[in-house]
Design a protein around this nucleic acid. Structure first.
Ligand SMILES: [Zn+2]
Length: 699
DNA sequence: AGCCTTTGACCAGCG
DNA sequence: TCGCTGGTCAAAGGC
């Protein structure tokens, strides 16, 4: 046992070392292990037993996935996206293809996992009032659930034929995504069907997504029902990164989310998401070093698992009250090939600002950029955002980001719904309530390095404070200097805002009585879970994020940003399991490349959390992948709905083309965008928007 | 001093 | 019952 393990300890080229990264290994999946350090993975040995059951199952699934399980195809960048739905008895899972530009972390935080109140707890489908589609995937999925009844959890059975020929639109994805999450919550859910959707979104996120967030989202309900859930991020051999949310069908009540990334993918190497994190050296441009998922992890073991190609590292959340664990499998070159999250954090993320120290966890959201001199430079997103403000265009190729005109949304202050005046990067806020601010705060945090602190809500700040106080001390000086510029920043200090809704959402358990704080719920709500206030549509879709409805089931909303971020493919399989693949070659970290479609502003929403540019200049149309926003009123236009609602989708025939390729011009999007079969008017409107949005993708 | 990684050994499920 | 296996423990050491 051990023998195997050791082989690779030092394998990591990039590895900095280990030891202790003092503090913090905030590992997100990227940096999982100590960031930057691709910690060796060889360790432990062991015998087995133990807790591995859930893990095993997931692994098996992963294996299946890696091996090509499913016909899903990994389309090379630029290749048409294909949605494949397959039924898998053994491995109920949802697969999400992660676009090359998206980092796992981002992915996790991505909207996809937003709790969607819309989702029907019982069915796992979106329940947008007006939207219903005969062919909707949701419909397809629903039957199963219905059969089982609420408790039954939803089982999604997608028939291949249903999906294969038709490419799902975002709404489909949404459904899929959400559904899975919902299902995950339910212990008794039997996820048998697996369906996959490939999204061709072209822009990439530079923002950080936290795995936890994703997990959180998924786990929203799970808190109530699920004891354990897992998130798996896996790299398949095909060069794609996959993320899965898994729940144990057995009643284990566990769910997991898995992200896989191709370790070997040719492209993966150069553009590997993780690589950047793992390797401080030479990460791809545009790559975000979201080293953190926002949580601190301690590695407690490493082992070469028989079925795994690479050694697995076992991490525990450092929070004493938190039992979340994650298993990271890394290739020898330091690429993360697979990540499994188990459980849900019962606490807020440690304050982000605290991990900027070099060598240790990467500060959040740093982006690799070319320096003027041509060299690569890690730059904080915050800075990046500034650039964005100036009007930057992030190229999907991740290799370059050019500044272009426009003004734009200030991420730092940004995108807030008109009413709020604040914008959240990437976060949607459903209501004006404090949550919104929270959300915003969260967003900021990520982007700003804690300008607004990611809220630690529900008195859990204390935890962070204490636990990290030390760290802060050491880092404080650094941070301060960095933060000094920000007016709103306060010393290690009081939050000037209410508890972020996101937190609340993230940790449903905290707010909701039903939840057990300690319960290991697999998915946590993402901090970005908030839907921008804006409105009606959105509210309709996801009105109740935040504490207001903590009890809400695990509802996942696909975040537009998230969706949009997928350049390549997304796959969603069974409810419980999400598998995301990151296509190789594109820089995962690449920021979103949102290009203005009409010459109007258009913002670039670099960061994942970015979210919707609610605060964009008036009259501007922002187009994110899959989203169209009318800045005038700050309301998202159709696409959002379609996205959010998911119900709209149902379209059997959806075809996604990769935005990059497609979005040459406005007209293009039609061709490229998924073809939606508009069964009903409601859906059609959405889709139209969708198309518009899609059209906006930068080519 | 504290936190983390490393890593051999151990635990416990499973066939 | 044995062996395999995966997960975990915990001492040692690094930063
Ligand atoms: Zn935790």
């Amino acid at each position: 046992m051990q023998a195997a393990m050791d082989e690779h300890d030092d394998h990591d080229p990039t590895t900095p070392v280990e030891g202790g990264q003092k503090g913090v290994s905030a590992a997100d999946f990227n940096d999982e292990p100590a960031i930057g350090t691709a910690p060796g993975e060889c360790g432990g040995g062991g015998r087995g037993g133990g807790g591995g059951d859930s893990m095993r199952g997931s692994i098996a699934e992963r294996r299946a996935v890696k091996c090509g399980f499913r016909a899903e195809k990994i389309s090379p960048v630029g290749s048409p996206v294909v949605v494949v739905v397959e039924e898998e008895e053994e491995c109920p899972a949802a697969f999400v293809m992660i676009p090359p530009g998206m980092s796992p972390t981002a992915l996790l935080d991505s909207p996809i996992f937003l709790p969607n109140s819309q989702l029907s707890p019982t069915t796992g489908s979106f329940s947008l009032p007006h939207i219903s589609h005969e062919h909707s995937i949701a419909s397809t999925l629903n039957p199963v659930n219905e059969d089982r009844g609420e408790n039954a959890g939803s089982v999604f059975r997608l028939k291949p034929h249903e999906v294969l020929d038709s490419l799902p639109d975002f709404s489909s994805l949404e459904n899929k995504v959400s559904s899975p999450c919902n299902l995950a919550q339910r212990p008794d859910v039997d996820y048998q069907a697996l369906f996959t959707v490939d999204l061709p979104l072209d822009f990439e996120f530079s923002a950080e997504f936290s795995e936890e967030n994703t997990a959180k989202n998924c786990a929203v309900d799970s808190v109530n029902d699920v004891k354990v859930s897992n998130i798996l991020i896996v790299n398949d051999n095909c060069g794609n990164m996959q993320m899965r949310c898994c729940s144990d069908r057995d009643g284990d009540k566990s769910s997991s989310l898995v992200l896989k990334e191709p370790a070997h993918g040719e492209g993966s190497r150069t553009h590997n998401l993780f690589e950047g994190d793992l390797k401080e050296t030479n990460p791809p441009l545009g790559m975000v070093r979201t080293s953190e998922d926002g949580y601190n992890w301690r590695k407690y073991g490493q082992k070469q698992v028989k079925g795994s190609e690479y050694p697995r590292s076992y991490y525990k959340c450092t929070n004493p009250n938190c039992q979340v664990k994650k298993v990271v499998e890394r290739s020898y070159d330091g690429q993360i090939t697979e990540i499994i999250y188990k459980g849900v954090h019962s606490h807020p993320k440690p304050q982000p600002t605290r991990r900027p120290l070099a060598g240790s966890a990467l500060p959040f959201d740093e982006v690799l950029e070319k320096s003027e001199g041509g060299g690569l430079v890690w730059r904080k997103i915050e800075d990046t955002l500034k650039d964005i403000k100036l009007g930057c265009e992030w190229r999907t190729d991740c290799l370059e980001r050019t500044s272009s005109a426009s003004g734009v949304t200030e991420l730092s202050e940004p995108l807030s719904p008109p009413t709020q005046g604040k914008s959240s990067v990437g976060a949607f806020e459903s209501s004006e309530t404090p949550e919104l601010s929270s959300t915003l705060a969260t967003s900021h945090d990520e982007n700003d390095d804690g300008v607004t602190q990611r809220s630690m809500s529900l008195g859990e700040e204390a935890y962070d404070e204490e636990s990290q106080s030390k760290r802060r001390k050491t880092e404080s000086s650094i941070l301060e200097s960095n933060l000094a510029s920000r007016a709103d920043r306060e010393p290690p200090g009081k939050h000037n805002h209410e508890v972020p809704a996101s937190r609340n959402n993230n940790h449903v358990n905290l707010s909701s009585g039903s939840t057990a704080a300690n319960a290991q719920l697999p998915f946590a709500l993402s901090r970005n879970t908030h839907i921008p206030k804006p409105e009606t549509q959105i509210q309709d879709v996801a009105p109740r994020f935040g504490r207001k409805q903590p009890e809400s089931h695990n509802e996942y909303l696909l975040r537009p940003s998230f969706l949009g971020s997928f350049s390549n493919e997304m796959k969603f399989a069974s409810p419980s399991l999400y598998l995301m693949k990151f296509p190789p070659l594109q820089n995962p970290y690449a920021s979103f490349g949102v290009t203005p479609r009409t010459g109007s502003i258009d913002t670039i929403l670099p960061d994942f959390p970015m979210s919707l540019p609610w605060s964009l200049p008036t009259s501007t149309n922002i187009s994110l992948a899959g989203f169209d926003y009318n800045t005038n009123d700050g309301k998202p236009i159709g696409p959002v709905q379609s996205f959010l609602s998911g119900q709209q989708l149902k379209e059997n025939n959806m075809r996604f083309l990769r935005p990059k390729l497609e979005q040459k011009d406005d007209n293009l999007h039609d061709a490229c965008l998924p073809t939606v079969d508009h069964a009903n008017a409601s859906s059609s409107s959405s889709s139209s928007l969708y198309h518009q949005v899609m059209g906006n993708f930068p080519s």
